[in-house]
């Protein structure tokens, strides 16, 4: 339950560490974000921090949203996201958050929308094997059996079938921050993150499950 930051995926490259190993990194433009609302137990029943990211023209934002942002004296912002807090953190309205919230070596969770693959078949979506392509076979990419016959007389729920693949919210956990460029508010994170370059991603300190 710690406050993260929103950013834009810029693309991937590789850099060399001090030992000389090549490390694949994703470059993320993290912030600058603005605290647009601070929710507390007294006023909202739970404590959280809402941050905004990506300054846009005023005409891109409707008036209720503008009114909400005006309370924090924030510029017009496209994306708003809330992070639950333990309640003890001190955030002020209008406070600026940048990449300097993170440090090299820290583990983070990166969430975003994965690349959409549209309506995908069995092989692409669930890694089914294909049928023989020749020798008179007409069973090329068909699914095979989907279950028994008269008993049970139906297909069990959860059966893997063709359908929409990708374009869903995905969180990649425990990625390592390799480098922080506070000046340009850039984060270099080891490994891949969801989405294509230009995608909106949320970077938060990793959620350690089961640890007190």
């Amino acid at each position: 339950m710690s406050v993260g930051i929103l950013g834009t995926k810029l693309g991937m490259t590789q850099i060399f560490d001090e030992v000389g190993n090549a490390i694949p990194v994703t470059v993320i433009q993290a912030g600058p974000c603005v605290v647009t609302q601070v929710k507390t137990k007294q006023t909202d029943g739970y404590s959280a921090v809402q941050i905004g990211y990506k300054e846009v023209a005023a005409k891109a934002i409707n008036r209720p949203e503008m009114g909400h942002l005006a309370k924090a004296e924030a510029p017009p912002l496209r994306h708003l996201q809330e992070y639950r807090t333990a309640g003890s953190d001190d955030f002020q309205l209008g406070q600026q958050l940048g990449a300097d919230r993170f440090e090299a070596g820290q583990l983070v969770d990166v969430a975003g929308t994965s690349i959409g693959r549209g309506f995908a078949g069995y092989q692409k979506r669930h890694n089914f094997r294909r049928g023989p392509m020749s020798h008179g076979s007409k069973n090329h990419r068909a699914p095979g059996s989907t279950g028994a016959g008269t008993t049970p007389g139906r297909i069990y729920p959860g059966k893997k079938m063709a359908g929409q693949m990708g374009s869903e919210r995905v969180t990649i956990r425990k990625l390592q921050v390799v480098q922080v460029d506070a000046e340009r508010s850039l984060l270099l994170i080891k490994g891949a993150v969801p989405g294509k370059p230009g995608a909106l991603v949320s970077i938060a300190p990793t959620n350690q499950v089961g640890r007190k």
Binding site: L10, G11, T13, I15, V27, Q29, L186, P197, G198
Partner: peptide
């Protein structure tokens, strides 16, 4: 600075 230029500038230190 666009994304391409930022990535090139990061790589430039190692090239």
């Amino acid at each position: 600075m666009n994304a391409e230029a930022i990535i090139r500038s990061i790589e430039a230190k190692h090239i």
